[in-house]
Nucleic acid binder design. Structure first.
Ligand SMILES: [Mn+2]
Ligand SMILES: [Mn+2]
Ligand SMILES: [Zn+2]
Ligand SMILES: [Zn+2]
Lengths: 126, 126
DNA sequence: TAACTAATGCGACTGTGTTGCAATAATGCA
DNA sequence: TGCATTATTGCAACACAGTCGCATTAGTTA
């Protein structure tokens, strides 16, 4: 898609994702950046990275979009249908290996299945 | 939970849900009420109805909470694990019969599975 | 009918995400 | 290296979902 100049902010954002197993909201991401980066800039970077198939995004609670690195996507389209998990105690979100089967329905053509599992993570269980 | 006085607004909200097969966002609901009802009031009514097991809610895109009547819930708790469908053309949202199986995971205790299917509804397909 | 208090409307607020615009900086090329 | 081009950035203002405190209104009960 868009041109990608190798800017400091872009590198910082990618580093943040590479340094964690978690999925990150824009807010969490900004907290973890070692320098201040403007909110708009972060959103724009995330949009661009998503267009380019570098990250994917999905909604978790409460009405917040989370982002994580893609494994096998590129600018020609996102191909994943894995589930996500959010801990109801610490709010941490992760991508799961679990592939999600897209079911067939009578009345509807289903293109996509979004699955968010909620419960407790290992850390919060003890 | 809370006391339920039989107010005009409460009746109007319940009627709106009874008169449709769709799930409704607060915004859609307000549009369909035959008289003006304040936004805060609508949100408070929806909260109360949800506490009482009369409606359930779930998130659809874009970051919007939808509400629909419950079939077998009451104030002692919500028991449903059905999927929801949202049409990507007309944005309409419906509850599906489809029960969702809550999977078991190694690292996490899963309490709940939220499934949102996206695609096209019958009307939008032709 | 009157007292009690739940429900309501209003305005202000929070938080996520978006946008127009002027300033800045990465890039490619002379 | 120096310069022109233009992508990227920061900022301020905005849109919109949802929440909250508070004064007013209106169900309910006696
Ligand atoms: Mn993921
Ligand atoms: Mn439902
Ligand atoms: Zn946790
Ligand atoms: Zn449709």
């Amino acid at each position: 898609m868009g041109v990608h100049r190798k800017t400091r902010n872009l590198e910082l954002v990618l580093d943040a994702f590479r340094n964690t197993q978690e999925a990150l909201s824009a807010h969490l991401l900004i907290e973890r950046l070692p320098v201040d980066v403007n909110r708009s800039t972060v959103y724009r970077l995330l949009d661009r990275l998503e267009d380019d198939g570098v990250v994917h995004s999905f909604l978790a609670s409460e009405n917040i979009r989370f982002y994580a690195l893609c494994k096998e996507c590129n600018q020609s389209g996102h191909v994943h249908s894995h589930a996500h998990f959010q801990c109801t105690s610490c709010s941490q979100v992760v991508c799961l290996e679990q592939e999600v089967a897209v079911p067939t329905l009578n009345q509807y053509r289903v293109d996509e299945a979004q699955v968010l599992l909620k419960g407790q993570c290992a850390t919060c269980m003890r």
